[in-house]
């Protein structure tokens, strides 16, 4: 397949398919995330990159047979290796009988949240989730370190004009989107708060929130979007999210309990758990949303810069 566009679209479809597979496997939270991330954000990012780098692969390549052989051999070894595995769906596999039962049976009493995934995520293994937020934060910083162009050069009037005219073409879409965006944002908030009871939570909410902003940006241009949300504000939110999350842990530590021991946050342990989870979900949501926006902005900025350069080159080329 030479057309990268098709490749990326297929990847998106693959992600969606696996998301639906996850639903079938009872992993609704995961499915939600995979749909938002795999099919949404990463496909989007890849598309942006393709617009920068060109959408077709160079043709003169052939598939190394040796690699194929190795891969097939390794794969068959692995399949051989699966023969001792517990069968699919068996209820008394070791995996279901050691640690997990406690989560299923006790979490309501200990954490007080019906969504077990959320209670494991946010309380039992809160530190993993903290790590996850930090990973996202790291990625955001990393992308910024790679792509940020520093102080934006004075906009070339001509190119901005071209931009604007381009954006004005899709009037219908713009109006529809304008109407949609508040709802998306609202939905994001719903997901944020509903995480305790159904699928969802800070991470999914953050992604949806970011999606709304990204949608806005795509239709109204980066410059306009920048006016609404400026760079340092996003950075602030991203940092604040991580700090909020961490501070919950520190506060519980100052209250004499272990790090992330929410029981110490309020006089009643369950209330403490509620409070703690609420706060950290906010932290997650803030960081994820702002980092996603940050990453997209940086990508888009590069793209714009490159297009501007090309245009300027074209103009210069014409005038010559």
């Amino acid at each position: 397949m030479k057309d990268l566009f098709a490749v990326v679209m297929l990847l998106g479809i693959y992600s969606l398919l696996s998301a639906s597979f996850f639903v079938a496997m009872d992993a609704v939270d995961v499915a939600f995330t995979e749909a938002a991330v795999g099919a949404g954000i990463s496909t989007l990012l890849m598309l942006v990159v393709i617009t920068i780098t060109g959408r077709s692969e160079k043709t003169t390549r052939h598939k190394p047979l040796l690699a194929l052989l190795v891969v097939v051999f390794t794969g068959s070894m692995l399949i051989y290796g699966t023969f001792d595995m517990p069968y699919f769906g068996i209820a008394d596999a070791p995996i279901h009988s050691h640690v997990a039962p406690r989560y299923i049976q006790e979490s309501m009493k200990e954490v007080g949240i019906p969504n077990i995934v959320t209670s494991v995520l946010a309380s039992y293994r809160a530190f993993d989730t903290f790590g996850e937020v930090v990973v996202i934060f790291t990625a955001g910083i990393g992308v910024m370190a790679l792509l940020s162009v520093g102080r934006r050069p004075e906009e070339n009037e001509k190119t901005t004009a071209i931009d604007d005219s381009m954006h004005e073409q899709y009037l219908v879409i713009r109006i529809v989107t304008k109407m949609l965006i508040p709802f998306i944002l609202l939905y994001a908030l719903y997901v944020q708060f509903h995480g305790d009871f159904g699928p969802g939570g800070g991470f999914q909410a953050g992604v949806i929130f970011a999606a709304a902003i990204i949608l806005y940006t795509m239709l109204f241009g980066l410059t306009t979007a920048r006016k609404v949300i400026n760079q340092s504000f996003i950075q602030f939110i991203a940092a604040a999210g991580v700090l909020l999350y961490g501070c919950v842990g520190i506060v519980s530590m100052l209250n004499g309990a272990n790090f992330f021991d929410y029981n110490a946050l309020a006089s009643d342990p369950v209330a403490g758990q509620h409070l703690g989870i609420l706060l950290i979900e906010w932290g997650v949501g803030c960081t994820v949303a702002s980092v996603m926006i940050m990453i997209f902005f940086n990508f888009a900025e590069r793209r714009e810069m490159q297009q501007n350069n090309e245009k300027i080159n074209n103009i210069e080329g014409d005038s010559l």
Partner: peptide, 19 residues
Amino acid sequence: GSMAMWVAVMLAIYLLLSF
């Protein structure tokens, strides 16, 4: 590419040895 291939090769070797 070859780096990644080495990974696969090593994996295969380990598996083979252990099996």
